[in-house]
Design a protein around this nucleic acid. Structure first.
Lengths: 243, 243
DNA sequence: CGACTGCTTGAGCCAGTTCAACCACTGTGG
DNA sequence: CCACAGTGGTTGAACTGGCTCAAGCAGTCG
């Protein structure tokens, strides 16, 4: 895969028109490919001096565990996303990262990243944009768990995922492939798996979305967006620092 | 007030030993003092080209509103905290900011901030540290709302606030002044005000904390920390980029 | 074939909500 | 100086969204 159609390039390209130089700088970041099997944590809480990764293919999730054994998934990462950017800047990781599927990721050393940023500052801005978008997603997630009921929350989640996947060429307004189990959905949405199941059924019976067999099919995006109170502006901030 | 005992200096100083140069650079950021009365929003969603502020005194809260009228408070900011750092980097604000009390804050223009960072890079690192701490707090907040019950969540919240206030010289292990109403607590914790009231009573009757008349008194911090499953490590990351 | 993982459905229960009332304070205008 | 309105806190009673427990089913893998 060349930089041109890599998920990361697609994502950043939605924000900055990338020059050839910038493209090849991105390419160079993809030098150290690594593979991770699903299930075994890539990073866990308290681990020190972790590298960052750029996800090339597959899905991962970041989560925290409570002493009682409960798990809260903070976010899923999909191709084109950075993982553990914060764990590089700070010595220790404050959450766990687990591959949901087989994962292909490029390791990025702190030095290389900083080096790339100083040579191609527009890339730095673009990556900062991506990081801020991630932060905005966490905030929106918080709002959803705090103040939306299970149905709205689930609908919102599925719409957000769709929107993110579309940006990296992995989905359309009609639907997308989704390797998550209902258990993972539950841990992300702050619900029980049983209840997620019922909510998904309702959404299906209402003719809004179908979540089945690893595929999300969106039947009526307009009604779904109304139900979820979905305003995608938090996903595509304008880029101000860029002239 | 000189930089030496300003809340921001105290906070950053916990992370980096600040030189005289760095101190006076901080001082210069405090040039444009402004006052804000409680109640009227300082920033609201969608607003463009906002400045950042450093909170000198008073409390503010950042929140989002849903179409149904529900409100979710994402975070409170206390003296020494930055407000709207993200809104500077990005053209539009994605949340509202409202003063909880009378507020004194220093406006910081994007240029001045970037300028300060390039002259005193250790300050840049320190501010980055603070920003990352804020992000970690939002994540912890998300986890709490998703997976802690009302009592644990409330206890955790009060402990976190105490820990933050202590860092800027506004509280101790015994307690602190707190201008929040039970309604605000409710909007932050994702609960109803009525239930917050009952939970606070329970915590009081258990001899753990008292939240009354604008004061939080911590009676038994050890039991409180156990109840809340409070691990303060997310509040004080080490600083790796600093030699 | 059995074991395991993920999905589905029912039944009963409980944490937290909503509605409604009442109290204590504080500030404000006549 | 009192009346009155507004804000914040407190408590009870009834209701409900989502949970837990329990069972059964389908597909997949060794």
């Amino acid at each position: 895969m060349t930089a041109l159609n890599s998920p990361l390039a697609l994502k950043l390209g939605a924000f900055v028109a990338l020059s050839n130089d910038e493209m090849s700088a991105l390419d160079r970041l993809h030098a150290r490919r690594k593979l991770f099997p699903p299930g075994r944590d890539m990073v866990h809480q308290g681990q020190v001096n972790q590298s960052a990764y750029i996800l090339a293919s597959g899905w991962v999730c970041s989560y925290k565990l409570l002493s009682g054994g409960a798990r809260q998934i903070v976010d899923f990462q999909i191709p084109g996303d950075f993982l553990g950017l914060r764990s590089v800047l700070f010595r220790t990781a404050d959450h766990n990262i687990e591959p949901v599927t087989k994962v292909e990721a490029s390791e990025v050393l702190a030095i290389d990243l900083l080096d790339t940023f100083s040579r191609t500052p527009r890339l730095a801005t673009a990556v900062l944009w991506a990081a801020s978008r991630d932060e905005a997603m966490v905030v929106e997630h918080l709002v959803g768990i705090g103040r939306r009921d299970a149905k709205e929350r689930t609908a919102h989640f599925l719409l957000e995922l769709g929107s993110r996947l579309k940006l990296v060429g992995l989905g359309s307004a009609q639907g997308y492939a989704c390797p998550l189990s209902q258990y993972m959905l539950a841990d992300a949405l702050g619900l029980s798996a049983v209840h997620v199941n019922r909510v998904l059924r309702e959404l299906r019976e209402d003719g809004l979305v179908t979540f089945q067999n690893g595929h999300v099919v969106i039947h009526d995006i307009d009604r779904l967006m109304v139900l979820a109170d979905f305003d995608k502006s938090y996903l595509d901030h304008d880029g101000p620092l860029l002239k």
